[in-house]
Design a protein around this nucleic acid. Structure first.
Length: 770
DNA sequence: CTCTAGACGCTAGG
DNA sequence: CCTAGCGTCTA
C-alpha cells in the first residue's frame, strides 16, 4: 500500500506515521531481504518482519509460536498417528444426543473412508498398557452392560493429520474422541524442543492507518552514524557531552527502534544504539573497540534517559561485552508504570497517553533513523513531564533508589541464567511419563470409557451427571466463578474420593500432567545450551513485585513431588521428584539461597501493630505451623505439612485480599483508608524484597576482597545466588547481614530473620548455620 | 468447513 | 489477592 505523503502536508488530515509504518509492513514488504551496511536511508522494502518485541507483549506471541511449531512438525511428519474411534453405541439412557450423534457418525464416516481398515484387534486392556507399539487401542466398557466396545484406534497414515475438533463434542463432551497425544511423541519433545528453534512466519492482518491531526514538519535531525572508521572524526563532539542528560534508544536491524517496536511482531537482534544530546544524534553501530570505549564513556559520564533499559543493558552486555557498567539511568517505561501501577502502559504510545502528551508535529521521512530521532525527541519531552509527575506523587525516591538500582541487577540475572541438568530432567520425565500412562489407563477403566482427563467439562459430566457422586457423598459442590458450573477442583475431588476411585485418579493424573507439561517439557522449550534465561518483568505486577516469565521460575514447586499420591499398603514405589533439583550451579560454583522468614506477615504485623501476631512471630520459628496449630486446635507435633501449606495459602490470601476488611476493623478507619494502608503494606513488602536485592548486591560488590557471586533468581522473598565455591561462607555472611539490615533501612521495628542455605542444586539445599 | 483468539478452568508460586 | 502457564472449548 502506498501513502501519499505530499498530500498530507497540505491538508490537515495527516497520516500517523506509526500506523502507516505498521500497515506498510503488512503487505508491501518482502521479508527475505536483509539490510546491512546501509545505515542512513532504509528503504521501506527492507523491513524485516521479524522484530524484537517488548517483553510485556510476549505472552500471546510465544503461545502462537509454539502452536505453529507443533503444527509444522506434524505436517511434515509422515508418521502421524491418527486416533480413530470407530463407533460408540450409547445406551437407551442417551437422552439428548440426537444431533450430536448425527454429526459424529457423519464425521466418522468421512474419516474412515480415507483410511485403511485396522490391522489388528486387541481386546485386552492390559495388553495396551504393556504394548505401547500397538496400533490399536481398545478400551472395554466394563461398568455399563453395553453391548458394544469403544474402539480407539491409533492409525498410521500418509495423509495429513486430521484432528477431530471439539465441535463434535457438545456440552458434556464425552463423545469427543481426540485422545491425549501419544506418549511416544512426548518423550521426544524435550530433545526436539532444545534443538529446533521456533521459526515462525506470521502474516499480520491489515490494519488501516489512522489519520492523525498532527501537522507534518519538514525537519531533518542532525544525525551521524558512527562506526569504527569514522569515529575519530566526531571525537571532539563526543567529548563535550559530559554531565548532562542524554537519551539512548536501541535501533533494531529492521529499522524499528524501541519506541515504535510495538508495531511489529517476532524477534530480531538490536542493531545499534542511538544517543542524543541536545540536538545531536549519534548512532553507534558495530562492536569495535573504539565504539565500545566511546559509548562507555558517554553512558558513564551522563545521565541516561531511555525507554526499556533492560533491553539496552542486555544489548550492551551480550553484543558489546560491556559488563558492569553502571550508568545513572532513568527508564521512562518504569517511571510510567509507577504512576499507574494498576494499568501499566505497554508501549510508548501508551506512555504518551498516560502523560496526556501528544506530539506537536510529526516528520515525513522514510529514513528510519530520522524517524527514531523524532521519537527520541518525543521521549525527551515525555521525560520532562514524567519527572514532574513522579516528583509530585512522591515517587521519585522509590524510582531512583529502588527501581533504577534494580535495573542492572535484573539485567545481570537475565544475562547469566540458570544451568540445567539435562540428564536429570530426562530421567525425571521418563519416570513421570510411565506413571502417567498407568494412571491414564486406570482412569479410563474406572470411568468405563475414554475421555479427556484434562477437560474440566468432561470430568464434570462423568462425575456429577453420570456417576452422581455429589449426591452420593452428600456434598455441596462449589460452583465455578464464571459459568456457575460444578467445580472439579482439587478440594472438591478430595471430598468425593471415598465414594469412587475416579476422583483420586483424576487428581493424580492432573497432578502428573501439570508437572510434566509445565515443569519438565515446559521448561525444556526454553533451554538453550543447557541454560534457561527467564525474562524478569519489573513492571508487570500492580503490587510492585517482580514477575518472571518464559519460563516462570518463580512457580517451580518447592515441596518434593510424589509420583504416587495415594500409596497403597504394599506399594513400595513412592519415588519422589524434586523439580528444583534440575537447576544446578555451574562447575566450581554453589548455589546460595537466602530466605526471608515470612516477610509479608512481619510487614503486616508491623504495619498493623498487631501485638498477638508480633508475639507469635517472636516465639515460633515456624509461623504457619503455629497458626495451623492454633486454628485446628491440634498439638503442634500433629500438624502435617499439607495442613501447614493450606494454612499458608489461607494466610496469604487473607493478607492480600481480606486484609483490607480486617484492617478496617482493627484500625477503625473507613474503607478508603484501609485500602490505602493495605496498598502501602503490599508495596512495602515488595519493596523490601527489592531492597534486599539491591543492598546485598551492593555489599557483595563492594566487599574486599571481591566475592564472585551472581544473583540468579528472585522468588519474592527468596534470593538465589551462584557463588564461587571458595567464597561461599563469606558471601553467605554478607548476604545475611545485608538482608537483615533491610528492615532498619525501611524503619521496621520487627526483626527480619534470614535463613541461608547452600547446595549444588536448587533441590537439595542445606541450611547454613552461623 | 476450518482455523484461531479469547474466555474459562485449574494449579504452581508468594 | 495476584503472578505465570497449560489445557480445553466456544464463537
Amino acid at each position: 500500500m502506498k501513502v501519499n505523503i505530499t498530500e498530507t502536508t497540505d491538508t490537515c488530515k495527516k497520516i500517523n506515521w506509526d500506523d502507516m509504518l505498521d500497515s506498510e509492513l503488512l503487505d508491501t514488504i518482502p521479508t527475505n531481504k536483509e539490510l546491512k551496511g546501509n545505515n542512513t536511508i532504509l528503504d521501506k522494502g527492507l523491513h524485516n518482519k521479524n522484530v524484537i518485541h517488548e517483553n510485556t507483549g510476549q505472552k500471546r506471541k510465544s503461545k502462537n509460536t509454539e502452536l505453529k511449531v507443533k503444527k509444522v512438525r506434524s505436517d511434515s511428519n509422515e508418521e502421524i498417528k491418527q486416533q480413530v474411534p470407530t463407533e460408540t453405541c450409547k445406551q437407551g439412557n442417551n437422552k439428548n444426543n440426537h444431533f450430536r450423534k448425527q454429526k459424529y457418525t457423519k464425521a466418522i464416516k468421512n474419516w474412515l473412508s480415507n483410511l485403511e481398515p485396522p490391522t489388528e484387534d486387541i481386546t485386552d486392556l492390559d495388553n495396551i498398557v504393556n504394548d505401547s507399539k500397538s496400533s490399536v487401542d481398545i478400551i472395554q466398557q466394563n461398568t455399563h452392560n453395553s453391548h458394544k466396545e469403544k474402539l480407539v484406534i491409533e492409525k498410521t497414515s500418509k495423509t495429513n493429520k486430521k484432528v477431530v475438533q471439539a465441535q463434535l463434542a457438545n456440552k458434556d463432551g464425552i463423545m469427543k474422541f481426540s485422545k491425549p497425544q501419544p506418549n511416544a511423541e512426548d518423550t521426544k519433545n524435550i530433545n526436539e524442543a532444545v534443538e529446533t528453534k521456533p521459526k515462525e512466519k506470521k502474516v499480520k492482518k491489515f490494519v488501516a492507518p489512522i489519520k492523525s491531526q498532527i501537522p507534518v514538519k519538514d525537519i531533518t535531525y542532525e544525525l551521524h552514524t558512527l562506526d569504527e572508521d569514522n569515529l575519530d572524526d566526531h571525537r571532539e563532539g563526543l567529548h563535550e557531552i559530559i554531565n548532562i542528560e542524554i537519551i539512548a534508544v536501541l535501533i533494531y536491524s529492521n529499522g524499528f527502534c524501541q519506541l515504535n517496536s510495538h508495531h511489529t511482531d517476532g524477534t530480531c537482534t538490536p542493531d545499534g544504539i542511538i544517543v542524543n544530546s541536545d540536538d545531536m544524534f549519534y548512532c553507534f553501530k558495530g562492536a569495535g573497540q573504539k565504539i565500545k570505549e566511546a559509548l562507555k564513556c558517554l553512558l558513564e559520564n551522563n545521565t541516561v534517559i531511555c525507554y526499556g533499559a533492560q533491553n539496552i543493558l542486555s544489548y550492551l552486555k551480550t553484543h558489546l561485552q560491556m559488563d558492569r557498567i553502571n550508568p545513572k539511568i532513568y527508564d521512562a517505561k518504569i517511571g510510567a508504570s509507577l504512576l499507574e501501577p494498576d494499568n501499566p502502559p505497554e508501549n510508548f504510545s501508551d506512555v504518551q497517553k498516560l502523560l496526556s502528551f501528544s506530539a506537536q508535529y510529526t516528520v515525513a521521512t522514510e529514513c528510519t533513523l530520522q524517524k527514531a530521532a523524532w521519537y527520541m525527541s518525543l521521549l525527551k519531552q515525555c521525560w520532562a513531564k514524567l519527572y514532574a509527575m513522579l516528583a509530585e506523587d512522591n515517587l521519585w525516591k522509590v524510582f531512583v533508589e529502588i527501581e533504577m538500582k534494580l535495573l542492572p541487577i535484573i539485567a545481570g540475572m537475565e544475562c547469566r541464567g540458570l544451568c540445567i541438568d539435562m540428564s536429570k530432567l530426562k530421567s525425571m520425565e521418563e519416570v513421570l511419563l510411565n506413571r502417567m500412562k498407568a494412571v491414564e489407563q486406570q482412569c479410563y477403566k474406572a470411568a468405563g470409557k475414554v475421555f479427556q482427563i484434562n477437560s474440566a467439562v468432561q470430568v464434570r459430566a462423568i462425575l456429577y451427571d453420570e456417576l452422581q457422586l455429589d449426591a452420593k457423598c452428600n456434598v455441596r459442590i462449589r460452583e465455578t466463578l464464571c459459568k456457575g458450573a460444578k467445580s472439579t477442583s482439587e478440594t472438591m475431588l478430595r471430598s468425593l474420593m471415598n465414594e469412587h476411585p475416579l476422583p483420586k485418579l483424576i487428581m493424580e493424573y492432573r497432578h502428573l500432567h501439570k508437572a510434566h507439561a509445565t515443569f519438565l517439557a515446559g521448561i525444556a522449550q526454553h533451554i538453550k545450551d543447557g541454560v534457561v534465561r527467564p525474562t524478569w518483568v519489573q513492571t508487570a505486577a500492580a503490587t510492585g513485585r517482580i514477575a518472571s516469565n518464559n519460563p516462570n521460575l518463580q512457580a517451580i514447586p518447592k515441596a518434593p513431588f510424589d509420583c504416587v499420591m495415594f500409596p497403597e499398603a504394599g506399594d513400595t514405589d513412592n519415588s519422589q521428584l524434586m523439580f528444583r533439583s534440575i537447576y544446578v550451579s555451574r562447575p566450581g560454583f554453589s548455589l546460595v539461597a537466602a530466605d526471608f522468614r515470612h516477610v509479608e506477615c512481619r510487614v503486616f504485623a508491623h504495619a498493623a501493630a498487631d501485638a498477638g501476631l508480633l508475639r507469635a512471630l517472636a516465639d515460633h520459628p515456624d509461623l504457619f505451623r503455629a497458626l495451623a496449630q492454633h486454628w485446628l486446635k491440634k498439638p503442634e507435633a500433629e500438624i502435617v505439612p499439607e495442613e501447614r501449606e493450606r494454612t499458608k495459602r489461607l494466610v496469604y490470601a487473607s493478607l492480600y485480599g481480606a486484609g483490607t476488611r480486617k484492617l478496617m476493623e482493627i484500625l477503625d478507619v473507613d474503607y478508603q483508608q484501609a485500602l490505602q494502608v493495605a496498598a502501602s503494606f503490599n508495596s512495602s513488602a515488595a519493596d523490601l524484597c527489592k531492597l534486599a536485592m539491591i543492598l546485598s548486591e551492593e555489599q557483595l560488590r563492594t566487599s574486599s576482597p571481591p566475592v564472585d557471586a551472581h544473583l540468579l533468581l528472585q522468588i519474592h522473598d527468596e534470593l538465589v545466588w551462584e557463588v564461587n565455591d571458595l567464597h561461599v561462607d563469606r558471601a553467605a555472611a554478607i548476604i545475611k547481614q545485608a538482608m537483615e539490615g533491610c528492615g532498619q533501612w525501611c524503619g521496621m521495628t520487627v526483626p527480619l530473620p534470614v535463613a541461608i542455605s547452600t547446595g549444588k542444586d536448587w533441590g537439595s539445599m542445606q541450611t547454613l548455620e552461623n
